[in-house]
Simulated assay, not measured.
Amino acid sequence: MSKINIIGKASTLFLSLSILLSIGCANHVPSMKTDYSSAMNTKWVLEDIDGHGITDFAHIWLRFDGDRKIYGSGGCNNFRSNYFIENNEFKTQPFAMTRKACSPSLNIQESKFMQALRNIRTMHTQDNILYMTGSTHKLRFSKK
């Protein structure tokens, strides 16, 4: 094989690889940057848990403040805790809650919400919606 032939084949190979890489990258969707600051100092009202709507009369909400506090209502009882970010993961300390007597349906809804909230690890906002995700649960809130 001559040097010209080898250079020609190498150029063709390089061009082919470049095209394949550019096609592969064209479909790449950049990962969403986790921006915890966009969720702070805002009241967020729960819209769904794991893709399922919530009981209409359950007013479940939360708020994060700049002092690393999270507080809100599970629909019946109020809760509060401290949160922190570790290795870009959202984590909470154990929650303190009031203990009101509520209807069975609100108790079930609140229990599902609190279980999901305890396991949340990431969150981001987009178009005035707060998305919180854990290994087994997803929460979606609207800005109020």
Rank of each mutant, 00 (worst) to 15 (best):
N5D: 13
I7M: 07
I7W: 10
G8H: 02
K9P: 09
K9V: 15
S11Y: 01
T12W: 02
F14Y: 06
S18C: 06
I19C: 07
L20K: 05
L21K: 13
S22W: 03
S22F: 03
C25H: 08
A26F: 07
N27A: 14
N27L: 07
N27S: 09
Y36W: 00
Y36C: 01
S37W: 00
A39I: 02
M40R: 04
K43C: 07
K43S: 12
V45T: 15
V45Y: 01
D50N: 13
H52A: 05
H52T: 10
G53Q: 14
T55E: 15
D56V: 08
D56M: 04
F57E: 01
A58F: 02
W61T: 09
W61G: 05
D67G: 04
G72D: 06
G74S: 02
C76E: 09
C76W: 03
S81G: 00
Y83S: 01
F84M: 04
I85N: 00
N87C: 04
N87I: 00
E89L: 00
F90K: 03
F90I: 15
F95Y: 12
M97N: 13
M97Y: 09
T98Y: 08
K100A: 08
A101K: 11
S103F: 01
P104E: 14
L106A: 11
N107D: 09
F113H: 11
L117V: 02
L117T: 02
R118K: 15
I120L: 02
I120P: 11
I120A: 08
T122R: 02
T122L: 06
H124R: 12
D127S: 03
N128R: 01
I129L: 11
Y131C: 06
T133Q: 15
S135G: 09
S135D: 14
H137G: 06
H137Q: 15
H137Y: 14
L139Y: 02
L139W: 05
F141P: 03
S142D: 10
K144C: 11
K144L: 10
